[in-house]
């Protein structure tokens, strides 16, 4: 079963709704900042920041986080490419919204929490994901979800961001066995 989970227009509305939810949960928005997980979370963090700025009336800083060095499967796969970690603000005392495109096993988020802990001590960390596809292997849940999608393990969710050369659609694809 291949199908479109989110069309471009729906994607834009979904992100706007997530931004409203983030604003609602954080009435004191001064210390709020977004951190996008490389690579799929970076585009979403940028979009959420722009949407939050429209809601809150002030800019929300965005950082990038590469979690490759914190993965728990490094000796079971080819060494991953390392991408930049750039967090242009101090984490101490802030409310951080960790952002990723797809939430699956939860292992990436686990790695991201460890990576953030090495960079500072935020007051609170939320998790925002565009698609929650289930199959968690760790006790992790998202605070803000664009769309919940029941999937099988033989499927993959592909988010095609315009920022990464795509067309702003989210697809569910069967993986060849």
């Amino acid at each position: 079963m291949n199908g479109v989970l989110l069309e471009p227009q729906v994607l834009v509305r979904t992100i706007a709704r997530m931004a409203h939810e983030i604003a609602e949960r954080n009435p004191q928005s001064e210390g709020l900042a977004l951190v996008g997980i490389q690579k799929g979370g970076v585009a979403l963090a940028g979009r959420l920041s722009a949407a939050l700025e429209r809601v809150l009336g002030h800019a929300i800083p965005v950082g990038l986080l590469d979690v490759a060095m914190y993965r728990d499967d490094l000796d079971r796969r080819a060494a991953p490419s390392l991408m930049p970690t750039e967090i242009p603000f101090g984490l101490d005392g802030r409310t951080i919204v960790l952002v990723d495109d797809v939430l699956f096993s939860g292992r990436t988020v686990r790695a991201a929490l460890d990576a953030l802990a090495d960079l500072g001590r935020p007051r609170r960390i939320h998790l925002a994901v565009l698609v929650d596809r289930g199959h968690r292997e760790l006790p992790i849940r998202a605070d803000f979800v664009g769309k919940n999608v029941p999937t099988s393990l033989r499927q993959r969710v592909e988010v095609r961001w315009v920022e990464d050369g795509g067309d702003d659609t989210v697809l569910l694809q069967e993986v060849a066995a």
């Binding site: 060095m69 490094l74 000796d75 079971r76 796969r77 080819a78 060494a79 991953p80």
Partner: peptide, 13 residues
């Protein structure tokens, strides 16, 4: 060290 730690044959993800 990081690169050598990964990259075992047949397990290229």
């Amino acid at each position: 060290l990081f690169l050598l730690n990964g990259g075992r044959q047949g397990e290229l993800a």
